[in-house]
Amino acid sequence: MNAQGRLPATGAGATGWRAFLYLLMIAIAVASAFPLVWMVLSSLKTPAEAMQTPPVWIPQTPSLDSYQKVADLISVGRSFMNSAVIAGITTAGILLTSLMAGFAFAKYRFRYREALFAITIATMFLPPIVTLIPLYRLVGSIGLNASLAGVIIPNLANAFGIFLMRQFIAGVPDELLEAARLDGASEFRILFRIVAPAVAPALAALALFAFVYHWNSYLWPLTVLQGNADNYPIVISLSRLLSYNRSAVNTGLVMAGATLAVLPPLILFVFLQRFFVRTITASGMTGQ
């Protein structure tokens, strides 16, 4: 430490340090994007190029062979459909149950309200693995194992979704609801015509979160579907492709499948991310 003690704000040391941090940030931003760029590039290589060492970065003759091949190996269309059904229905269900329960918790007073809400909070971050075995047995005992319904139904209500909706609906002015009641609107109408539009950004964020999570989920569908490959979502089909090729990895093939599987959540992210940012800011996660 020299006589001055602390670094001056605009001294050479501070500027150098700041420049270094900016460079590091840019480097990590590039690193964030690099694997994904590499994924897409690899999916366009010919098998020979994909196996080459040292690796070829840019395919010389971009080809869609890998996409054709991956479609021959796993039923891409069917897997995609399964993923869409699982993520789509689960997301719709979560939005509906969260909106309704969040509304009740925020705007009604009823017996056991506090107790029910406390249970919701307490189990919000329950590790899914803890309930995996009993849940699997339960789904089996009601005859839903190996089916898409078995994957979907247990996830139709979500504690985090209820919590999020309750927080946001609590901020909707009561006067708005009372005015609608005086006009003779039913409670259902109030919920869907007044409350839902008022919390639309939070709903959009929850939709993004739920869809991405359930599109990508792995352990639960793998457990329920138990080898019924017809019902595999794309993520599981892809992971099986990986294990087939564990000895001699055909990079292009796996990357073609991965590129396809990334598209739906990515498109949703591009469209809904601004709501996500807004909701995080407004949720209280970052303070008042």
Partner: peptide
């Protein structure tokens, strides 16, 4: 920075 978060852990 957020982009990789939409990828499945499998991918």
């Amino acid at each position: 920075f957020f982009f990789p978060a939409v990828l499945s852990p499998v991918i």
